[in-house]
Amino acid sequence: MYNMLTGVDLAKKEIQVCVAKSNKIVRNMPMTPTAFSNWLATQKPMTVVFEACATSNYWYQCAREYGHDARLISAKLVSNIRQNQKTDKNDAEAVLQASQLSNVNFISGKSKEQQELQSLVRMHQLSVKHKVAYGNQLCSLLLEFNIKLSPTDAGLNSAIQSILEDAENGFSAIFREALHTAWHQYLKSIELVKHYEKSVARASRASEACKNLMKIEGVGPTNAVNLYIALGCCELGVFKKARDAAACIGLTPIQHSSGGKVRLGSIGKNIRNSSLRANLVAGAMSAVNQAVKRDSRTKKDEWIKGLVERRGKRCAAVALANKTVRTAFSLLRNGTDYKAELLSA
């Protein structure tokens, strides 16, 4: 059915399309986005491989709507495969060649719902960065005048209000006006963070998959959305098993195996999506703290307590985050509901 293979190099104004049939390139030509969309609509079902980049998810969805087998491939892999100089023609041909490698790992494409959820999370993350930056700048500038204050919102508010109300502290009217403007900008950033938090919470409650994921210990709205985005597209077999998903997120020990000897090291520091792992571990740490304070209700509570006694809270939090990813993978893959296994009476 998919006897034609097409490699696509995407750009804003021009799209390079390289078509191969029976391992022979029959076309490698540029198209406008409109012409490429019309071309996809008129072609018989084929395998279309896009280099993962901006707009790749849009074209991934478009190709699937027209009945094609659409896939995304790593831009780094394409760069390593590309021969000769970097041109659109060579890039499209490299996409085609990289997709034919044995055991190539394709990137999971996102649905429109997942793209919307991801956008909400990114907006929230950026608003948090802006809030922290505004607060740090205010604290640092005031410290230059030997004004020491607490970095909390209440401490910052108390110090700035005191400065603005004290007419005898020697500050000029221009500086007071600028400080007042900066303070209101900081307050607006706080309101923006709260607004995006509510938006993420509403969106997660509106998604059945996210609602189910939030039943897992240590998974709130943000972690539910992140897990759904990272693991929600399983139809192409991006992750064959749950351990692969946990390893991709960076929650399994790094292997240093050679000569038939398996050596497992520590959890790696350098991973692609550090914010996802950080959020999962933070949520797991919250669940660990709650589990050690109360009587065990489930078998997972007993497992957490035993792990805390043997290895400490930090190790237990990472282990719980690992288990959370594996559980989420199983729920999304099998379409089942999460139910914690209660202790027998």
Rank of each mutant, 00 (worst) to 15 (best):
S99N: 04
A92P: 14
V104L: 00
Q97I: 03
A92D: 14
V95P: 11
A94G: 13
S111E: 06
N103A: 09
F106P: 08
S102H: 11
Q85F: 10
Q85V: 14
E93T: 09
G109Q: 01
Q100M: 08
N90K: 08
V95S: 07
E93Y: 08
D88F: 13
S111Q: 03
E113A: 06
E113K: 05
I107K: 11
S102G: 07
K89N: 09
Q85D: 15
T87G: 06
S102L: 07
Q100A: 01
E113M: 03
Q100N: 03
S111V: 02
K86T: 11
S111N: 02
N105T: 15
L96A: 12
S102E: 12
N103G: 08
K89S: 11
A94V: 12
Q83K: 10
K110D: 02
N105W: 10
S99C: 04
K89P: 07
E113P: 00
K112A: 15
T87R: 05
K112R: 15
T87E: 06
G109D: 00
S108F: 00
A92Q: 14
T87H: 05
K110N: 06
D88G: 15
E93M: 10
Q97D: 05
Q85S: 15
A94E: 14
K110P: 03
K89Y: 10
S108T: 01
N90P: 07
D91Q: 09
K112G: 02
D91K: 07
D91A: 10
A98G: 03
K86H: 13
N90I: 05
K89C: 08
V104A: 00
N103T: 05
N103S: 13
L96F: 12
N105F: 08
Q83E: 09
K86P: 11
T87Q: 06
V95G: 09
Q100V: 00
Q85I: 12
E93N: 10
G109V: 02
G109N: 01
F106H: 06
Q97A: 04
S111K: 05
I107P: 12
V95A: 10
N84S: 08
D91C: 10
A92F: 13
S99W: 04
F106N: 05
N90T: 11
N105L: 12
Q97G: 00
F106D: 04
N84P: 02
D88M: 15
L96D: 14
N103Y: 11
A98Q: 02
S111C: 01
V95K: 09
S111D: 00
N103C: 09
V104I: 00
S99H: 04
Q85M: 12
S102P: 08
A98Y: 04
N103D: 13
A98V: 01
E113Y: 02
A98L: 01
D88V: 14
E113V: 02
S99K: 04
A94F: 15
K110C: 02
K112Y: 10
E113N: 06
T87A: 04
N103K: 09
E113Q: 10
S102W: 01
L101P: 00
A92K: 13
T87C: 05
K110E: 06
L101Q: 11
V104M: 00
Q83R: 08
L96W: 13
E93Q: 14
Q83N: 08
N84V: 05
V95H: 09
N103V: 01
E93H: 12
A98M: 03
S102Q: 11
S111W: 08
G109Y: 03
L101F: 04
Q83S: 08
S102Y: 03
E113D: 08
I107D: 03
